[in-house]
Design a protein around this nucleic acid. Structure first.
Lengths: 121, 121
DNA sequence: TATTTTTGCATCGTGAACGATATAAACCAG
DNA sequence: CTGGTTTATATCGTTCACGATGCAAAAATA
């Protein structure tokens, strides 16, 4: 009884942590064919809504730090989804813009949300 | 309107993913002094409830696979929190048991849940 | 203008997650 | 008992998440 609050399933955080992992996992069947990971999908969501943003803005949307986002963008650049160009007004910034390939994925991704909300079990 | 469902904040999964990250992050001030990470804390929760379990049982509790749990346990063994001994009835199994150090942490961790539920902002 | 501070991005190291694969022990069907 | 299958664990490679640190450009302040 003294340690009741230390039981695993009494912990909201564990449930949250597990739910998030499993939910992200549920995207796999839809993201694998597109050749992207879930965090990469999130970056695309941001850029599809508004293209040509500096790294810090993308990080703000995703609530991540640049030390997570920078390597993520580098991998996406390597796989041809986006480009990172030096900012003109502020040369410290790197402006991230979608390539043709990155833009085109939007059409294929369009139905993913409803697929997931429809998936039972 | 056509792509409304692709907006970041319309996506439950993103909110879940972010909430989980931030919530895990909220444990840092309490786990850092104990020298453990959040997943390691989860392993301890399991072992504090029931000591001496095979790897697969711990994995089941945490809803993780052994390829995640094994390295986690190896790191915890290296830092002296637990031991992994060969199973006697089934020699494939590795029975995980707490060390003195691992058991002792329970007392220090006892107040973490209420600390977190009390933390504002 | 010169100096300090802040900001934007990058790099490094560590610890997770997880798919794929490997290996040995246990189990099971013939 | 034998051969095929399942089970328990481990290893490897890749991608994240994130603390710490570095650096150069911009902004603020003296």
């Amino acid at each position: 009884m003294e340690y009741e609050q230390l039981k695993l399933n009494n912990q909201l955080c564990f449930r949250l942590y597990t739910a998030a992992r499993l939910t992200v996992g549920a995207y796999h069947p839809y993201l694998d064919p597109l050749g992207i990971t879930y965090p990469q999908y999130l970056v695309l969501l941001v850029l599809w809504e508004q293209d040509k943003q500096p790294v810090c803005d993308i990080a703000k949307w995703l609530m991540l730090d640049t030390n997570t986002v920078t390597p993520l963008l580098q991998r996406m650049e390597k796989s041809g989804l986006l480009q990172r160009t030096k900012g003109k007004t502020d040369t410290r910034q790197r402006i991230v813009s979608l390539t043709e390939k990155g833009s085109a994925l939007r059409e294929q991704a369009k139905h993913i949300p409803e697929c997931l909300s429809a998936s039972k079990d």
